[in-house]
Design a binder for these strands. Structure first.
Lengths: 358, 358
DNA sequence: TTTTTATTCGTTACCGTGCACGATTCGCAA
DNA sequence: TTGCGAATCGTGCACGGTAACGAATAAAAA
């Protein structure tokens, strides 16, 4: 049960020159046939095709790529960030990815937009289209407008890869992200772990504006709710809304809310901003809240260390970006489609005991 | 927050010819410097190095590969199989992988061995070493001898990738397989799911011979035992041993064993051969055994369909092989190390209700 | 100084494909 | 038959890097 995978018997690969010799034609004509270019007589066409079929010609990828010697660009469309915010974590992966594909003549252009400002997304999207890239990596934070955007990419034949969130319509080359529903489920499991009975949980949420933003956290919410209602059917789930853009209001809102609901001992947050809650938690150590959030931002890790945050569920945004760029490059340069379309990164559970090794 | 990743300001990549021109030397000398070949004066060496540093030269991979124009071989060292056995599932992935890397001038040689015969492994290993491959994919079924084998690969500088099982020593390029401990844990969870109390479970096992075979199922066993003893501390775990090479004995052994232990209602098996048990199960439908096994062999799926097997935990051997070959090829051809060293495939739970969509 | 040997370097012919340019052939009408 | 445009085809260079070959120079021996 030993054998060799090989398309031909001879161990020497056949080249264009071989075909030319065998057909009595020239390289140029063979090349025209191979690329379906005009200016070839039917007879010559048939002769070349026959040899190709018989001997199983396949072009030398390296020679072809060298002859083209194209420089291509890949646009990466991501939200801007301030220091310490989620998208900063992706930056290292961007850099690594750019390095990795640079050898293939691919240049990475990062285009930023304000994830709370639709106009800025429009401008960024236009910029991407204007540069006519060979591929696009994007985090589709604005649902409807991202949809329009990727449709235009599709029309121009530009492959695109989703990061973090994806839109539920076909056409994308790949997706890299966390399994969102499961992450919400896991969040609830960690939050209530080792508790026989939980009567009330609170979720700190961010009020989104109206512009049809794609909110990945709704899937987390579903998973979270499913777990809670399965394991603690009588548990009440309360939401309190805060606005990250008005940090001065947050403490007041939380104080008021938790005074109103003094029995709550479990707090979760679906996005990466649990650090907005830690100042409140630090002022009430006696209440012993059990707190679970997402993502290993520096500020969140500080919450783990000082004991206000019980656990974080982390993904690896850098790895996601890195893989996204790699997949896109393989497709652009070699025409290799990815093995899996939807690629889920692992969900890493961080506590004060393991965070420093992450 | 938009920027371009680029190692140099000019958008034109620098070539060997550029360096030659700038140093007043020739391409040949530059090439000698780049490859640390002898025959270059210190002065010339320094001149070239300076330009390389200043302008940030990096070679064109495609041109280099074209110039070398090597044909390389990758050896895939796997157990032989009879129709319907586990390793047959990997074959499709082998073929796909071979096709995918063929464009890079890599030829896949499959070398088979009998997983129950150490001598045949030795012969196969020698064959691999004799062909001096550029890389090796292997399933290390014989622990000690595989260790010796990979050490020899290591000495020759040949990279290797583990499939299915791995040896717990460094040096391998990557590993693709199922998380074994977790799969055993999961197996126990499925087996006892929805049961408040389980007093007795049976595991059908295969007696291995003495030759220090690497038995991946021991890790499954650990996970299985951990789950059971955590959730059902008083549960008794019984083992019954069968020999796949003597199928005519099996039914008798099982009849005897289960007559001796009439209270057993849960049966598990750590390897892919649960189909060996189905004939027995078919004769005792009234006992309503709950049965969990591994891998989607056709014979196992038949067990799902006729109701004798409750669930199967499947991996995707074809995908594992495919990825292993791809990883190896990326490393050999482009020098790209894999993103992750240990790559776990998902554990897919198959029941009679979802198996046909797998 | 001349001859020999060692060191250093330039020249050149590839690797296989892409493509522009110019050459050749063909069909058809004058 | 000649002429002429269109169809068809061959030639040759480019892409960037590799490495064998031998030429030129420097160092050592005579």
């Amino acid at each position: 049960m030993s054998y060799i995978f090989s398309t031909m018997d001879s161990n020497q690969r056949i080249t264009i020159k071989d075909i030319a010799r065998l057909t009595g034609l020239s390289k140029g004509t063979v090349d025209r046939v191979l690329h379906n270019r005009e200016g070839v007589s039917k007879k010559s066409y048939a002769k070349v095709m026959k040899v190709i079929q018989d001997l199983g010609y396949e072009p030398n990828l390296f020679a072809s790529l060298l002859a083209h010697n194209k420089k291509r660009t890949v646009a990466v469309l991501l939200p801007n960030y301030n220091a310490g915010e989620f998208w900063e974590l992706a930056e290292a992966g961007l850099r690594k990815g750019a390095e990795a594909v640079h050898a293939f003549g691919i240049e990475i252009h990062r285009i930023g937009y304000d994830q709370y400002n639709l106009d800025s997304f429009h401008k960024a999207a236009e910029e991407v289209l204007a540069m006519n890239p060979s591929g696009v990596v994007l985090a589709p934070m604005f649902k409807d407008d991202s949809f329009i955007f990727v449709r235009r990419l599709h029309e121009k034949g530009i492959p695109y890869v989703y990061i973090d969130t994806k839109l539920e319509c076909g056409g994308y080359l790949a997706y890299f992200g966390m399994p969102l529903y499961q992450s919400g489920y896991l969040c609830a499991a960690i939050l209530t772990d080792a508790h026989k009975d939980v009567q009330e949980v609170a979720v700190v949420r961010v009020q989104r504006d109206k512009h049809g933003q794609s909110d990945p956290t709704i899937y987390r919410r579903e998973g979270f709710i499913d777990y809670i209602s399965k394991h603690f059917p009588s548990c009440k789930m309360r939401s309190v809304f805060i606005d990250p853009k008005k940090p001065e209001e947050i403490d007041g809102i939380l104080e008021e809310f938790f005074n109103l609901h003094p029995d709550v001992r479990h707090i979760a947050m679906y996005n990466s901003r649990i650090y907005l809650v830690t100042p409140f938690l630090e002022r009430h150590p006696e209440r012993n809240y059990r707190v679970v959030g997402f993502d290993n931002l520096a500020a969140n890790l500080a919450g783990l260390k000082n004991g206000t945050v019980t656990a974080l569920i982390a993904q690896r945004p850098d790895e996601q970006i890195h893989n996204a760029i790699g997949t896109l490059s393989d497709y652009i340069v070699f025409g290799k489609a990815p093995a899996k379309r939807d690629n889920f990164v692992s969900m890493d559970i961080l506590t004060r005991y393991n965070e420093e090794y992450y």
